[in-house]
């Protein structure tokens, strides 16, 4: 009797642990990278870390060669990481590779398919590997995208192949969609269709999208989170609106010393200008400079992009400029350029 009670208690404990484990998995982030690194002879991915919560879209932005595709291939275990941790839907991406991939829809940079076969055959082939494959949804998506199911894949244009890849990636209702430059090289109409499809995916709040691009307008349109990567290093990873709130373009006229203001002597003006420039540059080398990603002094005007705009920063700039600076919002495109230019300057 005691044995039976003990056995029942053990079973209940095991079931409780399983339920707790399942709940933790269900609540785990869609994608989590922690200090992920990969070393190549001429390039290194350095401590890439970010988290994509469930139900959101994250845009992964960076210039060509920044490490976007390498990161995505590491997540898909196509490239072996040198160090770090990758968890997809709460599971290790290597130890549970096939299990993870059953819940992930993936479309690579260059859509690879068997070219001699038809989209209908491809759907039948791919569908066998996903328990949740919805053949009706696949056929309907092909129809919606205007893809002829019986036409050989090799006869499809690049845009159509991307759409076919998207149809294949979506038809098993993935919890996480991973896309590597899905809109690169597409005409505006197809690009619009692809982005609209991404938006429709997250209507289901449990589904998430992670896509890389160097077209920042796409991220501005659809993403909730944004991660910037440059030279193998994550520079920013945050909520897109917070990033846009922090990053501002600041400009002000150089504060000429009193002896140069209103002077008509060119030498005196030149001297005053050099002094003002030196003063601003000195400030930029100090604590205030840390708030700027990039800056330039062009003639009589200072223009910079700040990565941490706040009331304090504005006050400091006002003191330096001896006037209220002009602050305007920046686009993700300008942030990307500032990051790349900033690192080039460094």
């Amino acid at each position: 009797m005691a044995v039976t009670v003990a056995g029942t208690a053990a079973t209940v404990a095991t079931e409780a642990a399983a339920v707790k484990g399942a709940r933790e998995l269900a609540e785990a982030p869609a994608l989590m990278l922690s200090a992920v690194g990969k070393r190549y002879p001429k390039f290194e991915l350095k401590d890439v870390s970010f988290v994509l919560p469930r139900g959101y879209i994250m845009g992964f932005i960076g210039p060509n060669g920044a490490g976007k595709s390498t990161t995505i291939k590491i997540v898909m275990n196509m490239v072996r990481k040198s160090r770090g941790t990758v968890k997809v839907l709460g599971l290790d991406h290597v130890a549970f590779e096939t299990e993870v991939k059953r819940h992930v829809g993936y479309l690579g940079e260059e859509p690879h398919f068997y070219e001699e076969v038809s989209p209908a055959w491809l759907g039948g082939f791919v569908g066998k590997y996903y328990p949740t494959w919805d053949a009706g949804f696949y056929r309907a998506t092909l129809r919606r995208f205007g893809i002829e199911p019986s036409k050989p894949v090799k006869a499809l244009s690049k845009g159509m192949k991307v759409k076919l890849g998207l149809a294949l990636a979506l038809s098993h209702k993935p919890e996480l969609l991973i896309l590597d430059e899905p809109t690169s090289g597409l005409d505006p109409v197809v690009r619009h269709d692809v982005l609209a499809e991404l938006m429709s995916v997250i209507q289901d709040e449990k589904r998430s999208v992670f896509f890389s691009t160097h077209i920042t307008q796409d991220v501005e349109k659809v993403a909730d989170y944004v991660t910037f990567i440059n030279e193998g290093r994550v520079v920013i990873s945050d909520v897109k609106d917070d990033v846009l709130a922090r990053w501002k373009k600041v400009s002000f006229p150089l504060p000429l010393p009193p002896y140069a203001r209103g002077a008509s002597d060119p030498a005196r003006i030149e001297l005053g200008l050099a002094e003002a420039r030196e003063r601003v540059e000195r400030a930029m080398r100090g604590a205030l400079g840390k708030a700027f990603a990039s800056h330039k002094i062009d003639g009589l005007t200072f223009t910079g992009i700040t990565r941490a705009f706040s009331g304090d920063v504005e006050r400091e700039i006002s003191q330096l400029a001896e006037t209220r600076p002009r602050v305007i919002p920046v686009s993700l495109d300008e942030i990307l350029v500032a990051i790349v230019r900033g690192s080039e300057t460094c």
Binding site: M78, K101, Y106, G108, H112, Y129
Partner: peptide, 10 residues
């Protein structure tokens, strides 16, 4: 094709 297969749960 190998990259295509590697994207599937195989």
């Amino acid at each position: 094709a190998l990259l295509f297969l590697k994207g599937l749960p195989l």
